[in-house]
């Protein structure tokens, strides 16, 4: 048991505006898995105990609470589980590198449209997209068409939260017109 107190990236209480909720996800284990050249088959074998396959670009695969989310070229994040030993891949702990936010509700997509240059018209569960949240780096996972996990750098958590909050307020003000 560590003697040091662990702190969340943000420690923010959830916000609900216009029926849409922004919240901070709790800390979880995140491990970057970057397979070495030519290791596809060996990797598939090694991932089998987790019940996961290495995701195609822009996708995540999942088994129970464990998720393997494509996070870039030759790379995926294992989220919520322990990486098997001796993977034919570079394995790097990323658990504390990210803040993970959730935005869910009828206005979630309208809020994201203020900052994310992605076409989310056909958003569906299982998508894992790298992009930008305004000026911030972004890993966006689609939980449902109106529910999104947003991961950005931990040090930028306050900016991410503040900007999303501001967009929610503006979206709400527009709704009030109709």
């Amino acid at each position: 048991m560590p003697d040091l107190i662990a702190k969340p990236a943000l420690g923010a209480a959830p916000l609900t505006i216009a029926g849409t909720t922004l919240s901070e996800n709790g800390a979880t284990q995140i491990t970057a898995i970057a397979p070495y050249p030519g290791s596809q088959a060996a990797l598939a074998q090694a991932l089998r105990p987790l019940g996961l396959t290495f995701p195609a670009p822009n996708q995540f695969t999942e088994h129970g609470d464990v998720r393997l989310a494509w996070s870039g070229r030759d790379q995926a994040f294992l989220i919520g589980g322990e990486a098997p030993a001796d993977l034919p891949a570079a394995v790097t702990d990323q658990s504390d590198a990210w803040v993970s936010l959730q935005i869910a509700g009828p206005q979630a997509r309208a809020v994201l449209a203020r900052y994310v240059p992605l076409d989310l018209r056909a958003a569906s569960r299982g998508q894992s997209l790298r992009s930008a949240l305004n000026h911030l780096p972004l890993l966006l996972m689609v939980e449902a068409p109106d529910s999104y996990t947003l991961m950005t750098f931990r040090s930028m958590a306050r900016t991410a939260w503040a900007e999303l909050h501001e967009a929610m307020i503006k979206v709400e003000a527009r709704l009030a017109l109709t």
Binding site: G38, F54, R73, D74
Partner: peptide, 13 residues
């Protein structure tokens, strides 16, 4: 096109 060929990167992306 990707600069790194699929062959070089082990067929993954």
């Amino acid at each position: 096109d990707a600069v790194a060929t699929p062959k070089a990167s082990g067929g993954m992306a």
